[in-house]
Design a protein around this nucleic acid. Structure first.
Lengths: 228, 228
DNA sequence: TGTACATCAGTGAACGCGCGTTCACTGATGTAC
DNA sequence: TGTACATCAGTGAACGCGCGTTCACTGATGTAC
């Protein structure tokens, strides 16, 4: 079983795509042992190579972690972008899809999400490389999608009522991140409130948008137009 | 200097209050090296005792970390409770104070906050003790303050328009936590948006409350009633 | 007030462990002729 | 098509290190008489 799994030398060289396999191993370990209970040696073991092998692909432990963050931001940005889809068909429906995509990423890649956003505490904790990843173009792109969405929503407002774009984008990000961060670690919070993260986010966003003055249709339209 | 600092044998015994000193040392180290770059040996060194000394006060490393979380929740709850002050003088002003207290705690005790809420990733990461702390009475009490505040705000709504209390409490918590979590680690986010966490939280909450239907006064009252 | 004893906080030396990283190496792959 | 060589991914043994934890101990404090 184990050996057959290692038999598919997918690519050209010895192991194949060790780099990707190591990143995947790191994510798995981080899910199990937390973002900093991760060890390079264990990742190598999980990938079925010697403890020295990772050094062919990453300068050191920190570089691997940084790549987990960087590549995570890339998939994150791509996913948010696809969900937003330029606000098609409508800004509102696209916005909902965006929120769901945000939570889906955090749920499906909790290890990536944790390394990307919960680096521990402050900056100067030796993981400068990760901090660099958080300032990478990919991270920028992800935030830009949120900002685009905020812009599209604000465009529905008369010009003199529009709050600063960045502020609205931050509100959106803040709420999404708060829910992702609190709910993804299944423990305490999920036990307190019998609601899915998606329900909390969507209801919160509806209230927020109503407060913003977006949301032309009256909430409760669905009950007004019939049950199914 | 160092020695004079160690001279004030505050209490009765040998060292004095080693337990508290160790917790403080742990918080300091966590601020510097991240929530899991913390080591029991280093904490002992910082407290000026032998590496075996901590075992007189904590079963093991994990127990110390759990106590950082537990005592953190206690101060957190006390602080939120004091700020909310039973909704006096008005629910709205008390609510603002509550939000500021939330952010103040995260800013002043980033290590505690990180251990309390950013335990890494999922539950089963060996830190069951910390997870237990998150379910402690103190943690419960903190959440209850938020729920009280949510209740007081909702009471201003006609009964048939009130969303579920727990949902509103979650929205509030979610936004506060999102901002605390994103802003407290000074790096990436603070650079993107030139706003203080307090400004983001307060503006976000105002929009949310407006959407809820609370907020009788029109926003912008301050500009209407003069400048100073 | 004084002595004998129990308690208990902190010592310091020691342990085994897994980690990050290095090194000279090996053997497969790709390339030039 | 075949040979010679450079490249490069992975090996395996070794290193020094700091950690968590244990142990028998010491010496100060509190308590009973």
């Amino acid at each position: 079983m184990k050996t057959s799994g290692r038999r598919w030398h997918r690519r050209s060289y010895h192991h194949g795509n060790l780099k990707e396999v190591l990143l995947e191993a790191a994510r798995t370990l981080i899910e199990q042992h937390g973002a900093f209970g991760f060890s390079l040696a264990e990742a190598a073991r999980l990938a079925g190579v010697s403890p020295a092998a990772p050094y062919r692909h990453f300068r050191d432990r920190d570089a691997l972690l940084a790549e987990v963050a960087r590549s995570g931001f890339e998939r994150f940005a791509a996913r948010l972008d696809a969900a937003w889809n330029n606000g098609i068909p409508t800004p509102l429906s696209a916005f909902e899809a965006l929120g769901r995509a945000y939570l889906a990423f955090a749920r499906e890649e909790p290890a990536s999400y944790a390394v990307m956003f919960e680096t521990g505490v402050s900056e100067a904790q030796g993981t400068e490389a990760i901090q660099a990843a958080a300032a990478s173009p990919a991270a920028e792109k992800a935030f830009n999608v949120l900002q685009q969405a905020a812009a599209a929503l604000c465009r529905q407002l008369p010009e003199n009522e529009r709050p600063p774009l960045k502020l609205v984008a931050m509100h959106i990000w803040t709420m999404s991140h708060g829910i992702a961060s609190l709910f993804i670690q299944e423990g305490s919070v999920a036990r307190k409130v019998p609601l899915s993260p998606e329900e909390v986010l969507e209801s919160g966003m509806l209230i927020y948008l109503k407060g913003l003055g977006v949301l032309p249709e009256v909430p409760g339209e669905e009950t007004a137009s019939g049950e199914s």
